[in-house]
Design a protein around this nucleic acid. Structure first.
Lengths: 249, 249
DNA sequence: CGAACCCTTGACAGAAATCAACTAAGGTGG
DNA sequence: CCACCTTAGTTGATTTCTGTCAAGGGTTCG
């Protein structure tokens, strides 16, 4: 593991409150690894024995069924994933693949479980992390069930603009095909919907997004704290980032 | 609180491992209440200050946005809900209403938070509960994104039959309109889909479900452990029951 | 330069929502 | 007991939304 990495990991909400001694013990049991782009590092259904922490690059969490795939989340540095599977010692519900060359720290699930039994602060952090992840997925499900595709895209773009500081122009952080899958539609559909949204105050040119009429876009999106999440409260290691930094728990 | 209730609550995975003394302290701070049917007892967006435990009746968790509603889960005895909001001390993401006359035990969130800081077993139970709830919602989201409506219904009916002990005949535990909303479709659509499924090995007459060709139904449903959940592992107080007993955390 | 790959566009088919009407069952009150 | 009302569920007609298939433009990269 590299010198600068440890302090970064230590700063994660998940680890920042635990005893230094326990943190070090966890890290001694861990190891870092660098993966090339487009590598499927976790396969859904596999037994969960390692907590993953992304320190460089980006990871897509996705699901498969009957030949179809769906993007569930994107994890960026510094964020963790598959905490829940580790805690319950049960198979992964999602697969994970690198979106670029990615560096990951791998923490054995058994160490996680034994450390939180002797470090209450770590246990509390895990709980907060899990609760945050839970709430993030509930929001995702709410968006899928309550909004149609145009509304989901509008809300996504509006939120992105907010995160970027209420700017009128920004660039998409992910490929459109992935965004489409995340938002629960086909790439073709997203393409058409984006074109249609030009009448509603937002223009997309390549990966460049230009909000031409903020109020109009907002009227379509109807952003809602209980779906789109806080503007950014920093309480969890990643929920509600441009793309949620941390989703699996 | 009634005599028979305390032992039942104590038997919940969430409470069964904690020290008796702490359990009693929690319960002393709690109170029970009986609500009539169709009462909205929790409104999304409200501050979360009480953990709810259903000891009699049934509760629907649902979300609202822009005039539309969607059923997210049903909680039956003995199951808890809104643990996550209590732990994070943040507003409810879902509303709750009684489906029948319902008896609820209300545990102050502040007591929950203070007790799990001094009772590691309780903290571990909370974590397991949260992790279980998280996984349940991930499954729900996967079903919504990966299956179409016919497949979702088929999988639901197949699973119900499994829970009932692989029987060929059983009755629906919820109204069809609610089931439709839970499965992410309109009531009209559910009605038509059920009729269409008669060609695929299952007949529904009122609330009576008769599986006429198990293999045919299974072929449509393609049940998947990573979406439909375990047949029943008992590890959480409710995930994956006929209707998940416990979903919010 | 060619081969992938991403994105877009068009035409079409299929899925699902909406609107409206109607039935059946349960409950209420005369 | 019956007329009445309410509500869940069904059915049909229709529109809207969304996925699928096919083709082509533009980029990137070996």
């Amino acid at each position: 593991m590299r010198d600068h990495e440890l302090p970064e990991v230590r700063r994660l909400p998940l680890f920042r409150n635990m005893l230094a001694e326990n943190f070090e013990s966890l890290m001694r049991a861990s190891y870092a690894q660098t993966f090339p782009a487009q590598l499927e590092m976790v396969r859904q259904g596999d037994p969960a024995d390692l907590l993953h922490i992304v320190v460089e690059g980006a990871v897509e969490l996705f699901s498969e069924w009957n030949g179809h795939q769906s993007t569930m989340a994107v994890v960026r540095p510094v964020g963790s994933f598959i905490l829940a599977a580790c805690i319950k010692d049960q198979p992964y519900l999602m697969s994970a693949r690198t979106m670029a060359r990615t560096r990951i720290i791998l923490v054995p699930a058994s160490d996680i479980r034994s450390v939180f039994r002797r470090d209450m602060e770590f246990a509390v952090s895990c709980m907060n992390e899990l609760a945050g992840c839970y709430r993030a997925v509930v929001r995702h499900a709410k968006a899928l069930k309550l909004r149609n595709s145009h509304e989901r895209i509008a809300a996504y773009l509006y939120r992105q603009s907010r995160y970027a500081g209420d700017v009128a122009t920004f660039t998409l952080t992910v490929e459109k095909r992935l965004l489409a899958s995340y938002l629960g539609m086909t790439a073709e559909n997203l393409s058409r919907a984006l074109k249609a949204l030009e009448a509603d105050g937002v223009k997309v040119d390549g990966s460049r997004v230009i909000i031409t009429d903020r109020e109009k876009l907002k009227a379509i999106a109807r952003p809602d704290y209980l779906i789109d999440g806080p503007d950014w409260d920093g309480s969890t290691s990643g929920v509600a980032l441009p793309f949620p930094r941390n989703e699996e728990g």
